[in-house]
Amino acid sequence: MSATILFTIISLSAIGAVAAIILYFVAQKFKVYEDPRIDQVEELLPAANCGGCGFAGCRAFAEAMVKADVLSDYYCPVGGNEAMTAIADVLGKSVEAKDPLVAVVRCSGSPAHRERVNSYDGAASCAISSSLYSGETGCQYGCLGLGDCVDVCDFDAIYMDEETGLPIVVDDNCTACGACVKACPNDIIELRKKNKKDRKIFVSCVNHDKGGVAKKACSVACIGCSKCVKVCPFDAITMDNFLAYIDPNKCKLCRKCVTECPTGAILEINFPERKVKTEETAKKPVEKAENKEQDNN
């Protein structure tokens, strides 16, 4: 009996030793030199592997940055300026601070405002629905409500509101990686500057139809009346094909356009309560969105 045990131990140890020696030489022979800074840079990245930088994962991004001469084209939206400065220190290069961004959903077409005219019964995917037809409502531009943006978000930063059927961004979780922007077939989601206290003003509509058509399909659509363009003191608002757009870089958050908009298509979010009461109709949808947003924060 003891002889069996002894033989087993000896033979197994011998096999182990031989294998170890072979492995050692093979490892030596096939050793690939890797810049140690890649590991250092990777350490500093958030390891979210979200692809928000445009590379396939954090390591690929780190490799690209180590090779690059200047870092101006590289930015990790998840790590933000903090991570980028730390990486620049490691690589002995410099970076400029960028404004942090956040995703906003530019559609307020809840069933209350935008009537459903048919019912979609296919696979629950916006991509499939949009390739089939214009959607359940009369508006061919707005949110389809099937949640492709929610499916792609790695950070739990977006969810579907059950009542409105629209996606809601959780500002604190959003890293502006842009996955939802790419996933949305109707290009409703936009990355906008994250202002102080997460305040933002934007046109919550992407409908390019003429006023009457847009209004018929959805009561909170932008009808292209250009009132906001005229009232804006900073020339931040442009009108393109019956749709207003507020340039986040020019907008100074004065909120004049919000009260001017006849349909309430322009939203103000995370602002303190106004002192002067405005018209009921204009205020309604705004309040709604405001409350939602505060619930999340």
Binding site: V117, N118, S119, Y120, D121, Y133
Partner: peptide
């Protein structure tokens, strides 16, 4: 009634 829409 609202018509159902789905792919084939």
């Amino acid at each position: 009634n609202k018509l159902f829409i789905s792919p084939s």
